[in-house]
């Protein structure tokens, strides 16, 4: 009979819990109409190749570091030598730059190694498509994303190669400014 008492007590306890929750604010939102702010260090977006707004030139120098570090091996870059850029970043370019977003696991390593902050993740919810081709990011699409980032700076992720290297260097106790590859 002791169990009967605890059953009755537990029953009222359970109903009290649901009663309290009845008056709490809903934790869900009506998604397309209301959107939660995306966190500053969001790592779930799609990719962009940044463009220098001053000279309107792409920052990518085709160094292929992202291709080498990508664990999923989805980035492919071919290098082309060309004329020196106006902003003095370098004289090499990515002839082709493809990123197969379908297999991307958002590890952000490519962003971390990029010496010129050329590849970044966007702070937008990833584009949904109905086809696999829709997830294949060619260089043109990546640069398009980069152009929208100039128009909407809020969509840029906090993480760029420079910032991430500063973070990891600081946590390792390395003095700031040691990194030769980082642009000024």
């Amino acid at each position: 009979m002791a169990s009967l008492g605890s059953t009755i007590f537990g029953s009222f306890n359970a109903m009290g819990t649901t009663f309290r929750n009845f008056f709490r604010r809903a934790t869900t939102i009506q998604y397309p109409k209301v959107q939660r702010p995306i966190p500053r260090q969001w790592r779930g977006g799609t990719f962009a190749l940044t463009i220098d707004p001053a000279t309107n030139e792409e920052n990518c120098i085709g160094c292929r570091l992202c291709e080498y570090i990508c664990p999923s091996q989805i980035i492919h870059v071919t290098l082309r030598k060309g004329d020196k850029r106006e902003n003095g970043v370098g004289a090499t370019y990515a002839d082709e730059f493809t990123l197969d977003f379908e297999a991307c696991m958002q590890c952000e390593l490519c962003v971390q190694v990029c010496p010129t902050d050329a590849i970044v993740m966007t702070r937008s919810l990833a584009d949904c498509t109905y086809t696999r081709e829709g997830l294949f990011l060619s260089k043109e699409r990546l640069l398009d994303h980069g152009r929208t980032l100039i128009e909407r700076p809020d969509d840029t992720s906090f993480a760029t190669g420079t910032r991430l290297r500063e973070w990891t260097a600081a946590s390792r106790g390395v003095q700031k400014g040691n990194d030769e590859g980082a642009p000024a």
Binding site: T18, N21, F22, R24, A26, T27, I29, Q30
Partner: peptide
Amino acid sequence: KIAARFQNRIGPYF
């Protein structure tokens, strides 16, 4: 609607 409130949801809306 009530089930949604008990579960901190909003329920049918649009």
